[in-house]
Each structure stands twice: as structure tokens, then as C-alpha cells.
Amino acid sequence: MDKIQEIKDRLKNLKSLPTLPPIVSRLNEMVEDEDVTAVSLGKVIEKDQVLTSKLLRMVNSSFFGFPQRISTVSNAIVLLGFNVIKTLIVTSSIFDVMQSSDIGLWEHSLGCAAFSGIMAARRNIKNPEEVSTASLIHDIGKVVIRSEFPEYYAKIVEDVERRGVFMREAEEEVLGVQHGEIGGWLADEWNLPERLSIPIRFHHYPEKAGEFVEIASIIHISDIVIRAWGYGFGGDKWVPPLSHAAWEQIKFGKAEGREIMEELDLRLSELKNFTMEF
């Protein structure tokens, strides 16, 4: 069968994407606590790309009446309520075997979300939380490849290590499609809003993101900056090529760049309170 068709079919019947065991066990501990609130659960959920995507899927499929679909964790939490969120946590599946690259990708996603949040606020984007969310889940396609197509994934990882190519190039060669596209398909399949699915799809080609070019550009630059910083692991060790169209959207000079670095350093250190446990 055609690989692209195979992937699309799999996405249709995708039952469950695995989460990192430490996050799930932390959340499980939290729900045992009588006084825990939905809001504090949300604060942990929004640190995980898989749980965040699942939460958004749930709220968007059970609540079709919204003219605009739900794109942020905080709105999803209010609508779903404590009990449903608790169920999501208690029933979430985890990776059978956790690899260091899984944690690396998780940190990469968190770092990108942090940088994107900073830039969204600085560029006065209406809903900065939405940009962070899109950035958090921009590599969800990689999780799909990793958990649903382990053989292809192994081949991709081998290509990256042996030939020193970008993971994206290896994906194109092995699957005929790259993770951005796969993530976009999944987001569509799960009824996530276009403000998330389009930037996910085009985070390597932000100029193609149409009306969401600004969000896609921020994610694109966040990918570059976070990899440059060496925070987490995005699948290969290289800083990816820059889209100059994206840079034009959100560019910053030396003075602002310095401030951004300072803010980013602080945000990334804050995340370590969370990631250092694992």
C-alpha cells in the first residue's frame, strides 16, 4: 500500500497516543488530592503535547456548536470540567519504553512554547496562549511516527545518525511526507481549529500558512532559537534553515534580541523545575 495512504488510514483509527510516564504519574498523584483544582491540572496538562492535543480534541468533538473551535487549554478546561479531565488523565496511555529522545522532544516542544509565548506577547498577538499551544504541539507528527510506525521511525533515526541529515529530510525519504504534514492531518482528523492545524502543517514553510502566517512564523523561529540554544532534542542536532519571510514577520534587532534572550533564559530555567524531576 502507498505509505501516505497507510499513514492517513492509521490516523483515522488512531486510538490513543502515548504520553511520558512521569507526567502521567504526576497527574495521577494530583487527582488523588481532594483539593486539587481543574486549573492546576491544566497547568500540568499544558506542559505535555499529547495530553494537550487530546484535551483539545475532546472539547472540539463534544462541542460542535462553537463558530470558532477551542484552541486553548484554559478554555477547554472550563468547558470539560474536572471529572472529564480526571478521566482523561486516569485513562491516558503511556510509552511502553521511554527513550531519552522522547524526553528530548518533550523539552524541545516546551522550549518552543515558551519562546513563542514571549514573542506572541511582544508582537501583541491577540491570544498569546493560543500561539504557545500551537507551538507546544507543532511536532505532534513526530510522536505519531514514533509510536505508530516504529519501523519507519527506526529507519529515520538511523538515517539521521548515519548521514547527518535533518530529521525532516529523512522522513521525506522514508515516508514520502514529513512530520509537519502528518501533524496537520492529525489536527484535522481531531477537529482542532485551523489556527492550530495550519501553523503545525507549515512550521517549516511558514510563508504558506495564509492568514496564520504570523503564528506559523513565530513557531518557525522558535524551532530555530530553541535548537540553537541546545534546549531539548528535536530529532537531529542541526539548526534548521530560516524562512526569511517568517523573519520579516517577527524580526527583532540586537537590543530587543538581548531582552528576549533574558526572558527566554528565565522561562527555560522555570521549566527545569518541572523537567529536572525526570
Binding site: 530555530i224 532559537v225 540553537a228 540554544w229 539548526v239 534553515p241 530560516l242 526569511h244 523573519w247 524580526k251 540586537k254 534580541g257 538581548r258 534572550m261
Partner: peptide, 9 residues
């Protein structure tokens, strides 16, 4: 631009 980002960091 990439070089500038590298220098910035």
C-alpha cells in the same frame, strides 16, 4: 540572519 541569531545567543 542565522549567524546573527547565533551571535546573539
Amino acid at each position: 540572519v542565522e549567524r546573527a541569531l547565533m551571535r546573539l545567543i
